[in-house]
């Protein structure tokens, strides 16, 4: 190797490493503090490695003396409910948009493209008023309802179905399959990679969402993960940072573990969107 290339490599690693340290610092700090005993958090001396392992009491407090388990359970319920309705409505509609000719198809697709420009913050106000008038605030339904519609999912699945070979659909029709069966037995299984990526995107987005839950949730029984950590922080005014960091690790942990396990699907799911 020429000396110039070696220097270039060292410089490149130096820059990347410096950046990586900044990127990873909060995660390292979070994990270290979550196993650090309280007396050390407030101690004057910084020793990165905790003197004794206090993970049990910190995580115990985060899980036992708070609403966190409930918030995480709510996160699962809300994310699962949203995803189920999204897939059930978006897949057949996207198939129809891509493959069937029916009245109003052009209009529907135009609405989908229009919807891609509208973030949740725009319809939030009228939706809130409607839910308030129906006495539905602070319910699972209120948490999930605005996200039942996924114009992004419609768009994504339509693009996928458009590339699916017409011959296979024709063969299925000749074999006597109806359109309903074709959607769920032929088209949807073929779209599994796209569905997986979309699911990752959807779950990550709604597990991490703060804006809408902050608006419609008032009771701790309906707190989502993001609200759970917020409430935990505000309740812990005494400043038990070990437990707070344990709580943060618990809330963000599922997303990070999921990312590390299914890295490709995660990256695809989050980047294919570009927006939202």
């Amino acid at each position: 190797m020429r000396p110039g290339r070696l220097i270039g490599r060292i410089a490149s690693h130096a820059v990347l490493l410096a950046g990586a340290v900044v990127m990873a610092a909060p995660f390292v700090w979070m994990l270290l503090t979550s196993i650090r005993p309280p007396e050390e958090v407030f101690g004057a001396v910084f020793d990165p490695i905790p003197s004794r392992f206090a993970g049990v009491e910190n995580y115990g407090q985060a899980l036992g003396a708070s609403n966190l388990p409930r918030a995480m359970l709510n996160g699962v319920i809300v994310c699962g409910g949203i995803l189920a309705v999204q897939l059930l409505t978006a897949i057949p509609a996207a198939y129809a948009l891509a493959r069937l000719s029916f009245r109003g198809r052009g209009l529907l697709f135009g609405l989908v493209l229009f919807g891609l420009c509208i973030p949740i913050q725009v319809p939030a106000l009228p939706l809130y008023i409607a839910l308030a008038n129906l006495r539905l605030l602070d319910t699972y339904f209120a948490l999930m309802m605005p996200f039942f519609l996924t114009v992004f999912g419609l768009f994504l699945f339509r693009q996928f179905f458009r590339t699916y070979p017409e011959e296979i659909l024709q063969a299925a029709r000749l074999d006597g399959m109806g359109e309903f069966e074709i959607v769920w037995r032929i088209a949807a299984p073929a779209a599994l990679p796209a569905i997986a990526a979309f699911s990752v995107f959807s779950v990550v987005a709604h597990w991490n969402d703060l804006y809408w839950p902050l608006i419609v949730v008032t009771s701790s029984e309906r707190a989502t993960p993001a609200l759970g950590i917020l409430a935990f922080r505000d309740a812990e005014t005494g400043g038990n940072y070990g437990a707070l960091m344990a709580a943060a690790a618990l809330i963000t942990g599922p997303m990070i573990v999921g990312f590390l396990v299914a890295r490709r699907a995660f990256v695809r799911g989050i980047t294919m969107t570009g927006v939202r």
Binding site: A96, R103, L108, L111, F114, P123, M145, L149
Partner: peptide
């Protein structure tokens, strides 16, 4: 067949678009 099933498949999504997007707007 396509016209019928297309409408059936699109109906839920269209309903959601109206309720969650157009009406609030």
């Amino acid at each position: 067949t396509e016209a019928r099933w297309g409408a059936i498949f699109a109906a839920p999504a269209l309903l959601l678009i109206v309720v969650i997007l157009l009406a609030p707007l």
